[in-house]
Amino acid sequence: MNWEQNIIAATTEIFSTMLMMEVTPGAPLQERNANYKQSITGMVGIAGLFKGMLAIHAPADVAMAITTNFLGLEVDSINADVKDAFGELANMLGGSIKASLSDNSRDIQLSIPSAVCGEEYTLDYQPRNHCTTMPFKSAEGIFLVELQLEQQV
Protein backbone atom coordinates (compact mmCIF):
# COMPACT_ATOMS: atom_id res chain seq x y z
CA MET A 1 0.00 0.00 0.00
CA ASN A 2 1.35 3.41 -0.96
CA TRP A 3 0.61 5.46 2.12
CA GLU A 4 2.21 8.60 0.72
CA GLN A 5 -0.20 8.66 -2.21
CA ASN A 6 -3.12 7.96 0.11
CA ILE A 7 -2.19 10.87 2.35
CA ILE A 8 -1.65 13.18 -0.62
CA ALA A 9 -4.99 12.26 -2.20
CA ALA A 10 -6.91 12.69 1.06
CA THR A 11 -5.23 15.94 2.06
CA THR A 12 -5.30 17.76 -1.27
CA GLU A 13 -8.92 16.79 -1.83
CA ILE A 14 -10.15 17.87 1.60
CA PHE A 15 -8.18 21.11 1.52
CA SER A 16 -9.37 22.03 -1.96
CA THR A 17 -13.02 21.11 -1.50
CA MET A 18 -13.65 21.97 2.15
CA LEU A 19 -11.18 24.79 2.75
CA MET A 20 -10.67 26.18 -0.74
CA MET A 21 -6.94 25.96 -0.12
CA GLU A 22 -4.40 24.72 -2.62
CA VAL A 23 -1.76 22.66 -0.85
CA THR A 24 1.36 21.14 -2.38
CA PRO A 25 2.87 17.94 -0.99
CA GLY A 26 6.58 17.87 -0.27
CA ALA A 27 8.91 14.90 0.11
CA PRO A 28 7.96 12.49 2.91
CA LEU A 29 9.92 13.05 6.11
CA GLN A 30 12.72 10.54 6.54
CA GLU A 31 12.46 10.66 10.28
CA ARG A 32 9.33 11.38 12.22
CA ASN A 33 9.08 14.64 14.04
CA ALA A 34 8.30 14.12 17.73
CA ASN A 35 8.75 17.64 19.12
CA TYR A 36 6.35 20.46 18.49
CA LYS A 37 6.57 24.09 19.56
CA GLN A 38 3.68 26.53 19.57
CA SER A 39 1.73 24.10 17.48
CA ILE A 40 -1.51 22.22 17.39
CA THR A 41 -2.08 18.58 16.56
CA GLY A 42 -5.44 17.12 15.58
CA MET A 43 -5.58 13.36 15.83
CA VAL A 44 -7.93 10.42 15.45
CA GLY A 45 -7.43 6.74 16.23
CA ILE A 46 -8.01 4.06 13.60
CA ALA A 47 -9.16 0.58 14.63
CA GLY A 48 -10.26 -2.67 13.01
CA LEU A 49 -8.70 -4.25 9.94
CA PHE A 50 -6.02 -1.57 10.14
CA LYS A 51 -4.94 -0.15 13.42
CA GLY A 52 -3.21 3.16 13.90
CA MET A 53 -3.52 6.87 14.12
CA LEU A 54 -3.84 9.86 11.86
CA ALA A 55 -2.53 13.25 12.93
CA ILE A 56 -2.32 16.69 11.40
CA HIS A 57 0.26 19.06 12.91
CA ALA A 58 0.54 22.79 12.25
CA PRO A 59 2.32 25.76 13.80
CA ALA A 60 -0.08 28.17 15.52
CA ASP A 61 -0.14 30.80 12.73
CA VAL A 62 -0.76 28.20 10.02
CA ALA A 63 -3.43 26.56 12.20
CA MET A 64 -5.27 29.86 12.58
CA ALA A 65 -5.19 30.50 8.83
CA ILE A 66 -6.49 26.99 8.16
CA THR A 67 -9.30 27.49 10.67
CA THR A 68 -10.26 30.81 9.10
CA ASN A 69 -10.57 29.09 5.72
CA PHE A 70 -12.39 26.13 7.17
CA LEU A 71 -14.93 27.87 9.38
CA GLY A 72 -15.07 31.21 7.59
CA LEU A 73 -14.31 33.19 10.70
CA GLU A 74 -11.35 35.22 11.86
CA VAL A 75 -9.33 33.70 14.66
CA ASP A 76 -6.44 35.39 16.41
CA SER A 77 -5.54 32.80 19.01
CA ILE A 78 -5.56 29.02 19.41
CA ASN A 79 -9.08 28.96 20.78
CA ALA A 80 -11.77 26.28 20.91
CA ASP A 81 -12.65 26.90 17.24
CA VAL A 82 -9.11 26.09 16.12
CA LYS A 83 -9.05 22.96 18.28
CA ASP A 84 -12.43 21.85 16.96
CA ALA A 85 -11.30 22.55 13.40
CA PHE A 86 -8.17 20.43 13.86
CA GLY A 87 -10.10 17.58 15.46
CA GLU A 88 -12.55 17.72 12.57
CA LEU A 89 -9.76 17.86 9.97
CA ALA A 90 -8.17 14.76 11.51
CA ASN A 91 -11.58 13.11 11.42
CA MET A 92 -12.11 13.96 7.74
CA LEU A 93 -8.60 12.89 6.74
CA GLY A 94 -9.05 9.66 8.70
CA GLY A 95 -12.40 9.10 6.99
CA SER A 96 -10.88 9.57 3.58
CA ILE A 97 -7.94 7.24 4.30
CA LYS A 98 -10.36 4.71 5.72
CA ALA A 99 -12.46 4.80 2.54
CA SER A 100 -9.34 4.19 0.45
CA LEU A 101 -8.42 1.12 2.51
CA SER A 102 -11.64 -0.78 2.43
CA ASP A 103 -14.89 -0.86 0.47
CA ASN A 104 -16.70 -2.05 3.53
CA SER A 105 -16.94 0.83 5.96
CA ARG A 106 -17.44 -1.53 8.90
CA ASP A 107 -13.97 -3.05 8.49
CA ILE A 108 -12.15 0.03 9.70
CA GLN A 109 -13.43 2.50 12.23
CA LEU A 110 -12.33 5.82 13.62
CA SER A 111 -12.26 6.82 17.25
CA ILE A 112 -13.35 10.31 18.22
CA PRO A 113 -10.84 13.04 17.40
CA SER A 114 -8.88 15.12 19.87
CA ALA A 115 -6.59 18.07 19.60
CA VAL A 116 -3.40 18.71 21.53
CA CYS A 117 -1.76 22.09 21.60
CA GLY A 118 0.77 24.00 23.61
CA GLU A 119 4.03 25.88 23.88
CA GLU A 120 6.05 22.74 23.69
CA TYR A 121 5.02 19.10 23.59
CA THR A 122 6.15 15.77 22.28
CA LEU A 123 4.17 13.06 20.60
CA ASP A 124 5.32 9.48 20.58
CA TYR A 125 3.76 6.14 19.89
CA GLN A 126 4.47 2.51 19.46
CA PRO A 127 5.38 0.79 17.29
CA ARG A 128 7.51 3.43 15.64
CA ASN A 129 7.57 1.78 12.26
CA HIS A 130 4.76 1.86 9.67
CA CYS A 131 4.72 5.60 9.95
CA THR A 132 4.52 8.09 7.08
CA THR A 133 4.71 11.85 7.50
CA MET A 134 4.00 14.13 4.58
CA PRO A 135 4.66 17.86 4.65
CA PHE A 136 2.23 20.11 2.77
CA LYS A 137 2.90 23.63 1.71
CA SER A 138 0.09 26.18 1.70
CA ALA A 139 0.14 29.94 1.12
CA GLU A 140 0.15 30.37 4.90
CA GLY A 141 2.94 27.94 5.67
CA ILE A 142 3.76 24.28 6.09
CA PHE A 143 1.80 21.65 7.97
CA LEU A 144 2.32 17.90 8.41
CA VAL A 145 -0.02 14.97 7.96
CA GLU A 146 1.13 11.84 9.72
CA LEU A 147 -0.25 8.34 9.34
CA GLN A 148 0.72 5.37 11.43
CA LEU A 149 -0.97 2.18 10.31
CA GLU A 150 -0.57 -1.49 10.80
CA GLN A 151 -2.60 -4.12 9.04
CA GLN A 152 -4.06 -6.64 11.46
CA VAL A 153 -3.55 -10.29 10.57
Partner: peptide, 9 residues
Protein backbone atom coordinates in the same frame (compact mmCIF):
# COMPACT_ATOMS: atom_id res chain seq x y z
CA UNK B 1 5.76 18.41 27.45
CA UNK B 2 6.03 21.33 29.79
CA UNK B 3 2.79 22.97 28.85
CA UNK B 4 0.05 21.62 26.66
CA UNK B 5 -3.69 21.23 26.59
CA UNK B 6 -5.80 18.38 25.31
CA UNK B 7 -9.06 19.31 23.73
CA UNK B 8 -11.80 16.92 22.89
CA UNK B 9 -15.17 16.87 21.26
Amino acid sequence: GKFYTVHSL
